Simulated scan of single mutants.
Amino acid sequence: MIPEAEEYGVDVEFDEREVERLLSVTPDDVDAASGLTYARNVFLPLTTACRYTCTYCTFYDVPGQASLMSPENVRETLRLGADAGCTEALFTFGDEPDERYTEIHARLDEWGYDDVLDYLYDVCEIALDEGLLPHSNPGDLTEADFARLREVNASMGTMLETTADVDAHAGGRRKTPGQRLNTVRAAGRQNVPFTTGILVGIGESWRDRAESLLAIRDLHERHDHVQEVIVQNVVPNERSDFETPDLGTMRRVVAMA
């Protein structure tokens, strides 16, 4: 059972034969890609505030140290990106800041916004005004959130990371696989082109990796909306001592995907 999947009404199930098939895959079983494609994007970390405190994450800053890009800074960065030949504006930030981030909330209120998602809507409009396609990674969202934000986004995304209950997500403000899968499903129900993926090396097993990939496939087959699946390795940092997965591990996981 996927942690908290039942709470969110997510009914993803795994065919044991499919799990075993993925676990048997090796890099030699997969043909090399005929070519590589990419999108030039300008990276905009809208805020480093996040309600979660995942131990492997180096992106978020603690309350009192978190930053928030101003509209002027956003437009300036977008113009620099456009001048450099970028076609996409990648807006990323931690999941909606909670009550601990009083300074972030006060600044948003000063600018006339109820929350960071209202602000995201407007900066996406700035990106469109500057000729760039917005792609937003705002964390867990509801269908209502997606319905509104799809008006100003070419695509959106949130990493599933894993369907397993891992210590890396432990704590009073913990993200859960059920909630993440609910977000992936909500994007599909609102016809939002979506990027998601798994994080390798945060305490999950090989079976967890297989099940995570199958969960993504299952939701995509229902809603036809997953445009990209990221296979990302964890990196050691001052907050945790997770070891970076070796090349052999990453090649095998990519082959499974």
Rank of each mutant, 00 (worst) to 15 (best):
residue 240 S to P: 04
residue 40 R to D: 15
residue 202 I to R: 11
residue 233 N to Q: 15
residue 34 S to K: 12
residue 26 T to M: 09
residue 177 P to Q: 08
residue 167 D to A: 15
residue 155 S to C: 07
residue 81 G to Y: 00
residue 185 R to C: 03
residue 7 E to S: 13
residue 213 L to H: 01
residue 101 Y to N: 02
residue 2 I to S: 12
residue 231 V to H: 04
residue 55 T to P: 11
residue 155 S to M: 06
residue 201 G to A: 08
residue 151 E to A: 10
residue 115 D to E: 09
residue 124 C to F: 02
residue 131 G to L: 04
residue 234 V to M: 12
residue 141 L to N: 09
residue 55 T to Q: 14
residue 179 Q to L: 13
residue 251 R to F: 03
residue 87 T to L: 07
residue 112 G to F: 05
residue 61 D to Y: 03
residue 6 E to L: 15
residue 66 A to I: 02
residue 182 N to Y: 10
residue 237 N to H: 08
residue 195 T to P: 10
residue 197 G to P: 05
residue 137 N to H: 08
residue 89 A to N: 01
residue 30 V to A: 09
residue 153 N to F: 00
residue 98 D to E: 10
residue 228 E to K: 06
residue 222 R to T: 01
residue 153 N to C: 06
residue 179 Q to F: 06
residue 130 E to P: 11
residue 21 R to G: 05
residue 43 F to S: 14
residue 83 D to C: 11
residue 3 P to H: 12
residue 68 L to T: 12
residue 173 R to E: 15
residue 19 V to E: 00
residue 82 A to M: 10
residue 223 H to S: 11
residue 31 D to W: 01
residue 253 V to H: 05
residue 141 L to M: 15
residue 193 P to L: 04
residue 151 E to G: 07
residue 49 A to T: 06
residue 99 E to N: 14
residue 188 G to Q: 02
residue 86 C to N: 07
residue 222 R to M: 02
residue 215 A to W: 00
residue 248 G to V: 05
residue 253 V to N: 09
residue 209 R to V: 04
residue 183 T to E: 11
residue 1 M to L: 14
residue 202 I to W: 09
residue 184 V to A: 13
residue 203 G to A: 08
residue 26 T to E: 11
residue 20 E to S: 11
residue 46 L to E: 12
residue 9 G to Q: 01
residue 254 V to H: 08
residue 9 G to K: 00
residue 121 Y to D: 14
residue 97 P to R: 03
residue 154 A to D: 11
residue 179 Q to C: 13
residue 203 G to T: 04
residue 242 F to C: 03
residue 54 C to E: 05
residue 171 G to I: 02
residue 201 G to R: 02
residue 160 L to Q: 05
residue 43 F to I: 08
residue 250 M to V: 10
residue 158 T to M: 15
residue 72 E to P: 07
residue 61 D to W: 01
residue 231 V to N: 09
residue 214 L to M: 04
residue 34 S to Y: 06
residue 157 G to E: 10
residue 243 E to C: 14
residue 29 D to C: 03
residue 8 Y to Q: 01
residue 83 D to P: 08
residue 120 L to N: 03
residue 53 T to P: 12
residue 41 N to P: 03
residue 197 G to Q: 04
residue 94 G to S: 07
residue 202 I to C: 15
residue 8 Y to A: 00
residue 70 S to R: 07
residue 9 G to N: 01
residue 23 L to K: 03
residue 202 I to H: 13
residue 92 T to A: 07
residue 117 L to R: 13
residue 180 R to T: 04
residue 256 M to C: 00
residue 5 A to I: 03
residue 90 L to N: 12
residue 47 T to G: 08
residue 249 T to I: 13
residue 212 S to L: 02
residue 93 F to S: 02
residue 77 T to V: 01
residue 37 T to Y: 12
residue 34 S to W: 05
residue 165 D to C: 13
residue 47 T to V: 04
residue 103 E to G: 06
residue 208 D to I: 00
residue 42 V to A: 10
residue 2 I to F: 10
residue 231 V to I: 15
residue 117 L to A: 14
residue 86 C to S: 09
residue 195 T to L: 10
residue 73 N to G: 15
residue 26 T to N: 09
residue 43 F to A: 14
residue 155 S to W: 01
residue 111 W to K: 09
